[in-house]
């Protein structure tokens, strides 16, 4: 939808978390539509049986958003959080490196990998992780898309020492084809 925001219009980030069941997104978006709000970028996922929503909304201030959404979230047993943000649309950054990490699950994998990345100035744009395998033999899997000033080679140098710790680390250049 193309809509010119009114003067003073700003974006809020809604965070909604709770036990997953059908209809959460439908009820939230219907309430926001009734309130004349506009939706922006969003990421939502079922994580461990809970449904987590991160959603950009404009067209109402925090108090109005609260009034629109509280009946829905209370009715569904969800936690609601509303934050004003400085963000806006059409400011995507294109990742140039993808990192896949997996290994027998143990404490510290994420801290080690992201610590080494942060030391190089790597900016994480997207991170998805999961615990696969079985309860007795869990496998941790993580995929990170991000922006590395030094490209894949710089990331390779930063992460290579971690392979000695028994985790698999695969680094690939993301070369977006524009056609």
């Amino acid at each position: 939808m193309v809509r010119t925001p009114g003067k003073g219009s700003r974006w809020h980030m809604l965070t909604v978390v709770g036990a997953d069941h059908p209809g959460i997104v439908a009820q939230l978006s219907a309430a926001l539509l009734r309130g004349g709000c506009n939706l922006g970028e969003a990421s939502m996922a079922r994580l461990g049986g809970s449904f987590a929503v991160m959603l950009m909304v404009e067209g109402a201030d925090a108090a109005v958003l609260e009034r629109l959404l509280r009946p829905v979230t209370d009715g569904l047993g969800l936690r609601l959080h509303i934050d004003p943000i400085e963000g806006s649309l059409h400011h995507h950054q294109e990742p140039n490196v993808q990192i896949t990490v997996y290994g027998a699950d143990r404490p510290g994998i994420v801290a080690q990998v992201t610590g080494a990345l942060a030391a190089t100035g790597f900016n994480i744009l997207d991170l998805n992780s999961d615990v696969a395998g079985t309860g007795e033999r869990p496998i941790y899997v993580m995929i990170i898309d991000g922006l590395a000033a030094g490209g894949a080679d710089g990331v390779e140098q930063a992460l290579a020492p971690l392979r000695a710790g028994g985790i698999e680390v695969r680094i690939a250049s993301l070369d977006t084809l524009i056609g």
Partner: peptide, 12 residues
């Protein structure tokens, strides 16, 4: 692989 398009700006 990752793709974008001159006819679909600002999305990959």
């Amino acid at each position: 692989g990752r793709e974008g398009c001159m006819s679909v700006p600002d999305y990959t």
